[in-house]
């Protein structure tokens, strides 16, 4: 399990940035400043984790890439987003999916009244290829998510949370993407299911060469499966590094894993310390 990610990471670092977000500022409703200049890169074939607390701007970052922001009255007001050397920040989600960038939204968002299989088939909407090819993709998804195959004819609304998350990821895979933006896949799921899903993500990454940018609150799990991580706070990247380094970094441990050395700190102290630290760095 450990050999695949390192090889993927090393080949990735050799190539130029694949997806790059440059100094992006996002404003909702013309007044609410959510991202204050976020920059990050995802290498080809990499898994990059975007970590941070509630409201830090993780989802907004993903949505600014997939351009689902517009539907929520958000706008990228500064900066640029490039994918494979082309600017993508003005493209519609439809164009982006055709180019290979697709987002799996937070909270799964399956089509409740459609069956699992119909859900998966809608994922292939943007592809103009033969039925045989779509059938092949469907079989591929079923090999990765064998649970979905057994539930293929049940309405998605009646399946379990884990199955819905798998359905949402499978649906995105049906679009034959190169880059999946995965928003909070662990939300509301049992730890066992979370592991199962992350294992599948890792598999998809190493066997199907799909790159992932994943936003997670579950820092520990995310850093175990990612190659690289960014930590977002109040709409700014405050720290970045190799996943392994981040996982052992004392600050990260303290603030995001809750593994502080010298007992519990009060919120006020922590905030104070954090703020000072940011000014200096």
């Amino acid at each position: 399990m450990n050999t695949a990610p390192t090889s993927a990471a090393s080949t990735a670092s050799a190539t130029a940035p694949y997806l790059s977000v440059n100094n992006v500022e996002v404003i909702y409703d013309h007044v609410i400043l959510v991202l204050k200049g976020v920059s990050l890169q995802v290498p080809k074939g990499g898994i990059v984790a975007l970590l941070g607390a509630n409201g830090a701007g993780k989802s907004t970052t993903l949505k600014s890439i997939s351009n689902l922001l517009r539907a929520e009255r958000g706008d990228v007001t500064k900066g640029s987003i490039d994918f494979k050397g082309a600017r993508i920040d003005q493209m519609t989600p439809n164009d982006l999916v055709k180019r290979g960038v697709i987002q799996v939204m937070e909270g799964r968002h399956c089509f409740g009244h459609l069956t699992i299989e119909e859900n998966l088939l809608t994922g292939a909407y943007t592809r103009s290829c033969s039925r045989a090819e779509i059938k092949r993709s469907l079989d591929l998804v079923y090999t990765y998510f064998s649970r979905l195959k057994t539930r293929r004819s049940s309405q998605a609304g009646y399946t379990s949370g884990g199955e819905q998350q798998m359905c949402a990821i499978g649906r995105a895979i049906m679009a034959n993407p190169e880059m999946v933006l995965l928003d909070e896949p662990s939300m509301g799921l049992a730890p066992q299911i979370v592991e199962e899903i992350f294992e599948i993500v890792k598999d998809l990454n190493s066997k199907e060469q799909v790159s992932f940018l994943l936003a997670e609150q579950n820092t520990m799990v995310a850093l175990r499966y990612a190659d690289f991580g960014y930590i977002l706070e109040n709409g700014r990247i405050v720290m970045e590094g190799e996943a392994k380094e981040l996982a052992t970094n004392e600050d990260v441990k303290e603030f995001y894993l809750g593994l502080g050395g010298e007992g519990r700190k009060s919120f006020r102290e922590v905030k104070h310390y954090r703020r000072r630290k940011r000014w200096l760095s």
Partner: peptide, 23 residues
Amino acid sequence: TKIGRALRAVADDHQAALSIGIP
């Protein structure tokens, strides 16, 4: 049909339909 499926998908969840590239 594919269109019919997309229509039902849009009916269920606008945003999710948008996210998988249904215009």
